[in-house]
Computed example of a mutant assay.
Amino acid sequence: MKQHQIVIDVNKCVGCGLCSKVCVAHNLEIKNKKAGKVMDSCIMCGQCSAVCPKEAIALEGFDDCQIEKTEDIRLNPDAVLHTIRFRRSVRNFKKTKIPQEVVDQILEAGRLTHTAKNMQDVSFVVLDKEKDRIEKMAVKVFKAIKPIADLFSPMARNNKINDSFFFFKAPVIIIILAKDKTNGILAAQNMEFVAEANGLGVLYSGFFTIAANISRKIRKEIGIPKGKKAAMTLVFGYPDVKYLRSTPHKGLEVRYM
């Protein structure tokens, strides 16, 4: 594993203090008009290097480099709200194959997602060729526990567990793995936005996520490492149905204090 470290070029540093001002860990200070580290330990968030006007601070040991921001691009707030308002869980998919470049964009959205304490603990399993076999394993798990669920839930009793119960014959499934479930859910939301931008329908398969976490066989088969769990499973495909109206929602509940 590459060692991550902050490197400060004191010859470039002009002592402006911006780096210490934005440092979340309070690990940078200005002495004699030059920036310096308080401790070697750091969460490596990159705030300092991103704000430095003289490029005097660099983060080493990462697989990619920081990209220079050349323009401010802002999302249209009305368009974002429109997307959220008309967002639907899709369970009817076309057989159309999703281009690999679109899958790559979705994965990149997950990779770039912010994480608590900059853990960067999120990884992914893409089910493509093996999705039917893995789904059958999950079906077996749920068929075993369904009689118990039926005792407590009318909705469970109405659900018939068939061979496509989890993935609905969608072309691509992405399982999001994380140490902290919240980080995985944050990644899922960003991935959904990119999928929507590419015309895809998305389903959050909480049922498969449960099966993946409780079944040792599934965990082993999809390679969930020790210390991680399935945070969410995203089902992707081009929708085979068009929704014409938004989802009904309760009124806004908010209190200003």
Rank of each mutant, 00 (worst) to 15 (best):
M1I: 07
M1R: 11
Q3H: 14
Q3T: 15
I6N: 07
D9I: 10
D9F: 14
D9T: 09
N11I: 03
K12L: 15
K12N: 14
C16T: 09
C16E: 13
C19G: 07
C19M: 07
H26F: 07
N27H: 02
L28F: 04
E29Q: 15
E29Y: 13
K31V: 15
K31G: 08
N32C: 09
N32V: 02
A35W: 05
V38D: 11
S41A: 14
M44W: 04
Q47F: 08
Q47R: 09
S49K: 11
A50V: 00
P53F: 02
E55H: 10
E55F: 03
L59S: 04
E60M: 05
D64Y: 10
C65R: 11
Q66C: 06
Q66H: 08
I67S: 06
E68Q: 06
T70K: 12
L75D: 02
L75I: 08
N76S: 10
D78P: 00
L81E: 05
I84G: 01
R87S: 02
R91F: 08
T96G: 03
I98S: 08
P99Y: 12
V103G: 05
D104P: 06
E108G: 03
E108N: 11
G110K: 12
T115Y: 03
D121R: 04
V122H: 00
V122A: 03
V122G: 02
F124C: 04
V126Y: 06
L127K: 03
R133Y: 06
M137N: 00
K140E: 11
V141R: 09
F142Q: 07
F142N: 12
K143Q: 15
I145E: 07
K146L: 06
S153K: 01
S153V: 01
P154G: 09
P154L: 07
M155C: 00
A156S: 12
R157Y: 00
N158W: 03
N159V: 09
F165R: 05
F168N: 13
F168C: 11
A170R: 13
V172W: 09
V172T: 15
I173E: 06
I174D: 11
K179I: 10
K181Y: 00
K181P: 00
I185C: 12
N190Q: 14
N190H: 14
M191P: 11
M191I: 11
F193S: 05
V194H: 08
A195P: 06
G199V: 03
G199Q: 05
L203Y: 13
L203E: 05
Y204H: 14
S205A: 13
G206M: 04
F207D: 00
T209W: 04
I210P: 00
A211M: 10
N213R: 08
I214K: 09
S215M: 07
S215T: 06
S215G: 04
R219D: 02
R219M: 03
R219Y: 01
R219I: 01
I222F: 08
I222C: 01
I222Q: 06
I222S: 01
I224D: 02
K226P: 01
G227E: 06
K228P: 03
A231R: 03
T233A: 12
L234P: 09
L234T: 10
V235F: 02
G237R: 13
Y238S: 10
V241L: 15
V241Q: 15
V241W: 13
K242D: 13
Y243Q: 07
Y243A: 05
Y243N: 09
L244F: 11
T247A: 14
T247P: 01
T247G: 01
P248C: 09
H249G: 03
E253Y: 13
R255V: 13
R255I: 12
Y256D: 04
M257G: 10
